[in-house]
Amino acid sequence: MKKIILDVDPGIDDSLAILLAAKSDLNIVGITVASGNVEVNQGSINAIKALEIAGRDIPVYKGAELPLVRDYVDATDTHGPDGLSGMNYKVKGKANDGAIDFILDTIKENPNEVTICALGPLTNLALAIEKDIETMRKVGRIVVMGGAAKIHGNCSPVAEYNFWVDPHAAKRFFKANLPNVTVAGLDVTYDILFSPNMREMVKQFGGEVAQYVYDITQFYVDFHWEQERTLGCIINDPLLVSYLIDESIMKAYPCNIDVETEDLCIGESVVGFDVPSDFDGDYPINAKMCMEVDKVKFFDVFFKTIFPEHVADYELMKKKGYILK
């Protein structure tokens, strides 16, 4: 079974993504963390918490503390001071150092068999590329959450956070032209709205997992309402995990992706869909970008995987139109 590494910056939606992955049949061999939504030490604690909630023992590795070039800007305004709505969880486990080596070693031992699911800034992957691009070329597949092709950004009208926080890493990542890269950005994740109705349903499910999901999303709901009058929160990252579970959830199109590293549009993903397939200039086809999503299918996977004992309740809530109206 394909070995999967989650590269994350948890963060509320990253934590949900870890939980989803850890409760699924996916073969998660390790989690690497970079500074993003929160700085790397806090992010590692949050990653371990999600694994403990899922009852899984998967190693966590700390990676980049800072973006490659830019000054670091966290997203605690969105995720809460600790990245998890201020819950300040204590954990039993400890994170290891050496995220970059873990990524490279895993690929070396399993050439063309490793999938990386990158849900945070691309700093760790850019550092791995810098250290050993030949090994990185032997990755089996990479799915990335980031960017925005034809929709407004969340850090500026044109930029999405993961690419915006470390645009140089993102640029280096796409310039490396690694095999089999699929990107899902705000074009599809804006549809993944975890509504208050869903939250209340989860609370009624009861139990430790449900309470955790309920607690960590509180701040997110408040933020989205305050900031953009969206009722509910957009949970970007689990979408990529669901895509690894069921590829029919999103439709992706070949494109060239480059990233702006200066001035007004810094961090913008510049996505060209009309690159001729025989073009070998500066802008080759280097990725597929997801532009369509089946959100009902996503939530089916999300709830049924995380709460397998409540599938009947979930289906009933759907049927009654209480969720996914």
């Binding site: 044109v158 953009e228 001035d263 549009c265």
Partner: peptide
């Protein structure tokens, strides 16, 4: 509305439809 005058995005209009700025 602002316009990018540098980099790979040169000539792009950046329109703040949601007035976030």
């Amino acid at each position: 509305l602002r316009v990018s005058t540098k980099g790979i995005t040169i000539g792009q209009t950046v329109v703040d439809l949601v007035n976030s700025w």
